[in-house]
Design a protein around this nucleic acid. Sequence first.
DNA 1: CTCCAATGTTGGCAGTGTCCACTTTCTTGA
DNA 2: TCAAGAAAGTGGACACTGCCAACATTGGAG
Lengths: 194, 194
Amino acid sequence: MLRMSRSSGGYHHGNLHVALEDAALELLETTSAAKISLREVARRAGVSHNAPYHHFGDRAALLGALGVRGMAALLDAQEKAVAAAEGPVERVRALGLAYVRYAAAHPQAFSLVFDPDYCAAGSPSAGMAPLIARNEELLGSEVAALVREPGYEGRDPMALSAALWSTVHGMAQLITLGHLPLEAAEPALHALVQ
Amino acid sequence: MLRMSRSSGGYHHGNLHVALEDAALELLETTSAAKISLREVARRAGVSHNAPYHHFGDRAALLGALGVRGMAALLDAQEKAVAAAEGPVERVRALGLAYVRYAAAHPQAFSLVFDPDYCAAGSPSAGMAPLIARNEELLGSEVAALVREPGYEGRDPMALSAALWSTVHGMAQLITLGHLPLEAAEPALHALVQ
DNA sequence: CTCCAATGTTGGCAGTGTCCACTTTCTTGA
DNA sequence: TCAAGAAAGTGGACACTGCCAACATTGGAG
């Protein structure tokens, strides 16, 4: 039988893997990934400093798992925004705005997703690469629809996708850093895709 | 008289402040800022693990100083590129390309400059804010010239500046992460400023 | 020439990541 | 049904880190 919580007082936690991720995710709301310690996470989960090693190979693996969660949420936000928008132009803008808004709402998580020390290309944290690929496909298909619109015919979809991702990613970054106000995002996007 | 090097064997180094920055900068070429330890820097400078505290308040201060150096270099690269270009459109593109190329050439330094744990808005590391301001002025004046060109009249310079900085910053980020090839930068920039 | 502030030094503390050996519990197959 | 092994917990240890305190050396100002 599955023991779901530790409140029943057993030696085994029963759900520690996700409990650790949850605890770390909570810390990630107020602390940058670099400053999150495995021992503090273990403490929060009410478990010894070594228990995490039975669920994650090392600190980077736990942070990596968090990054995958973050990327999934980021992708989800974009998909929902695209589904709710109407025309091709509006859909591209909605996608970009969702990207930026997710970053603004969860700056540490967003930053973790693109932190090469834990997530990006460097580490093969299972599950991250497919999510990035899906994100690229999502953007690619929206841009493909966009370049069939009047005013966009003949634009190179690849270059446009790259430019859009860059813009949106840079806006996300600059906004979370305080160099740009969140309100600047929509006008800047309109300047680019009008 | 000023003792410039330690090779003369004195108890005092004579130039430790910059020697520490140099050693750290060397480490920064192969290691992310988060993984650079003050003690390792001290070792490289041939000095005890506590000497750095007489020149930098703490680890973040040393990394912050490195960030200022990095930002100065980034700004310099842009200024030189702008000076070497001819028309207003070309100048904006050259500026952006210089930004991206600096990031590609010094990924860790670039990343440090925009790492809120050491540099960005959060910490008042003397010297960083004015450099950022100068960079914004540089971009602003080039964009101001751009919007007087045929095809750009009536564009909001503020929104355009924000969009350009975002694009270029995002490209820099995505390229250093390996999500975009460096060769994608120029076409994407042309797609944006044509 | 003498003192002192700047700049070095060693030693120590608390916190961290990770390895090891051990204990407790769950599961599973004879 | 029950013994045995796997899974999941425990504490201890080690090397490393940032930083603090106390002490040593030295160059320069008076």
